[in-house]
């Protein structure tokens, strides 16, 4: 479908109209779609050969999905326990992310079912960042956020990606807030076009 693609080891933006194949591309990367001939090399490791759990990805799925029956804190603890993140590092990151995303500890103690769309999306982003991911995949991760929160969330992702050297793939139908990303790809009928027009 996509052919050979070299994404940058920093930030990448994939955009395209609905139905262009963005979500299928994400499902292939996550390992939910069986694609036996795909290889995905990150720092000389073929992630396509690993199971979804072993890939150690930081993911925000469409609509900022979080566990509907848990509190915000329980969602974060699920990631931390799954990824065996050190307690001290977890607490440090938690405070930093809470401050930058303007989510209070009290808010995180609430069930996610009572949170607004924007709060859920910020929580989903925290879950993606807190598990020490090898790669970040953010599928429409900022769509429910209002102006200020959106800018803060994008800045957090940008800083996180640069400081910790985590390759990041942002999937969005709206490119207006991502001018700073040099590596932009357009998804068109299942094909990935580099910087519009040139196939990479």
């Amino acid at each position: 479908m996509i052919g050979k693609v070299s994404l940058s080891d920093q930030m990448n933006l994939i955009y395209g109209q609905s139905g262009s194949g963005k979500s299928t591309f994400v499902d292939v990367l996550l390992g939910f779609v069986n694609a036996p001939r795909v290889s995905w090399l990150v720092k000389n490791e073929d992630l396509a050969q690993l199971s979804t759990e072993q890939k150690k990805l930081g993911v925000v799925l469409q609509h900022g999905q979080v566990f509907p029956h848990l509190t915000g804190m329980q969602c974060l603890e699920f990631v931390v326990k799954s990824r065996k993140v050190e307690n001290k590092k977890y607490k440090d990151d938690l405070s930093a992310f809470c401050e930058k995303l303007q989510l209070t500890h009290d808010k995180l103690k609430q069930k996610t079912a009572t949170m607004s769309g924007g709060e859920k999306q910020r929580l989903a982003l925290m879950c993606a960042l807190i598990g020490e991911p090898k790669v970040l995949i953010l599928d429409e991760a900022f769509s429910s956020l209002d102006g200020e929160n959106k800018l803060k969330a994008i800045k957090l992702v940008k800083d996180f990606s640069q400081e910790r050297q985590v390759p990041t793939i942002i999937i969005s139908h709206d490119v207006s807030k991502f001018d700073f990303i040099k590596n932009q790809y357009q998804m068109q009928k299942g094909r990935l076009l580099h910087n519009v027009g040139t196939t990479s």
Binding site: L30, K56, Q65, V66, F67, V79, S82
Partner: peptide, 21 residues
Amino acid sequence: RPVIKLAKTYGGDRWMIYKVV
């Protein structure tokens, strides 16, 4: 189905997904 998909992307193993989700 989507919730389990999420739990897998978070790195949860089979037992943890069963117990928590």
